[in-house]
């Protein structure tokens, strides 16, 4: 039996087809209209079918042609960087710029090749100071510096 090759094309094709299917399913209630009077569903449906067909073609190509393999995923940077940005997003308004800056810098640094706690602390402090001066005093962004519930 022919062993299924897990290469980039194979996975990418499935991904594109998945986007197409998801779009068709989510957009099933949007009226398509006609070519003369296009409804809100006309373009999305066209594009989703396109994605479905292209995805299928790419998957088939992935099965027939031995392409580049999918390299190992590095979970640590991915998780830490995403978590850092999300933490910033959630903390900025309720907790102010200083807390959010410390969060994004420290959590982000955990995703790096090596983590030096003292160095990161100094970096976060320096960046927090710089961000306050530049964005709040310099550019007048409407942000709280300290956590609003403390002040």
């Amino acid at each position: 039996m022919h062993r299924l090759r897990i290469n980039q094309d194979f996975v990418a094709g499935l991904m594109f087809a998945g986007w197409g299917l998801a779009g068709l399913w989510l957009g099933q209630s949007y009226p398509a209209g006609s070519a003369l009077r296009m409804g809100p569903g006309y373009m999305p449906r066209l594009l989703c079918w396109g994605l479905l067909i292209l995805g299928a073609l790419i998957t088939i190509k992935g099965i027939i042609v031995a392409g580049e393999k999918v390299e190992r995923w590095h979970w640590r940077p991915l998780l830490m960087v995403s978590a850092a940005v999300l933490a910033f997003a959630f903390l900025l308004e309720p907790a102010g710029l200083l807390v959010a800056t410390f969060a994004i810098v420290t959590i982000g640094a955990l995703g790096g090749p090596e983590f030096r706690p003292v160095e990161v602390l100094f970096l976060a402090a320096g960046l927090a100071l710089g961000a306050v001066v530049l964005f709040i005093y310099g550019l007048n962004l409407p942000l709280a510096i300290w956590p609003p519930f403390l002040v």
């Binding site: 960087v81 810098v105 982000g108 640094a109 990161v120 960046l127």
Partner: peptide, 21 residues
């Protein structure tokens, strides 16, 4: 780079935020 990327991260995040707060 271990010092650079957290800084870039911060500036990216503030940049996005400041567009529409």
């Amino acid at each position: 780079y271990r010092l650079l990327f957290p800084s870039i991260l911060l500036f990216c995040a503030i940049g996005v935020y400041s567009l529409n707060n």
